[in-house]
């Protein structure tokens, strides 16, 4: 038996369900579309680096600076870090991983 569907039947039995599905899908994904891509720990990270409040001016080339005396182990404080200019600086901070 072949059932012939009229245009009105198609609209009721196909068009309305498709419309409902489309609206529900849009509602589900609306928040993620609005918020953009989300970071998921454990997955790769492809976004370019972002530096907020980074360096504003070009710093002098360390090669053109006057020579400073080399640091020795006796003069360097524990935890001190030798910078590009050879000056020892004791830095603070903390580390974490997740």
């Amino acid at each position: 038996m072949i059932v012939e569907l009229s245009g009105h039947s198609l609209l009721v039995f196909v068009g309305i369900p498709v419309l409902v599905i489309a609206v529900l899908t849009l509602l589900v994904f609306a928040s993620s579309i609005a918020n953009g891509p989300r970071y998921r720990p454990g997955l790769s990270w492809w976004a370019p680096p972002v530096w907020i409040n980074g360096p504003t001016a070009t710093k002098p080339d360390p090669a053109n600076l006057p020579e400073l005396p080399e640091l020795t182990a006796s003069t360097q404080a524990p935890g001190a870090t030798a910078t590009a200019t050879g000056v020892a600086r004791t830095l603070g901070g903390a580390s974490a991983s997740w």
């Binding site: 004791t90 830095l91 603070g92 901070g93 903390a94 974490a96 991983s97 997740w98």
Partner: peptide, 28 residues
Amino acid sequence: PAGRRLEIVIGELAKRQLSDSSAGLAAL
């Protein structure tokens, strides 16, 4: 984010105002 690592580095003079334990709390 890829290596799932966080570092807080405090400059030498800033260290007088911000201790390592405070940085550790913020890191947590």
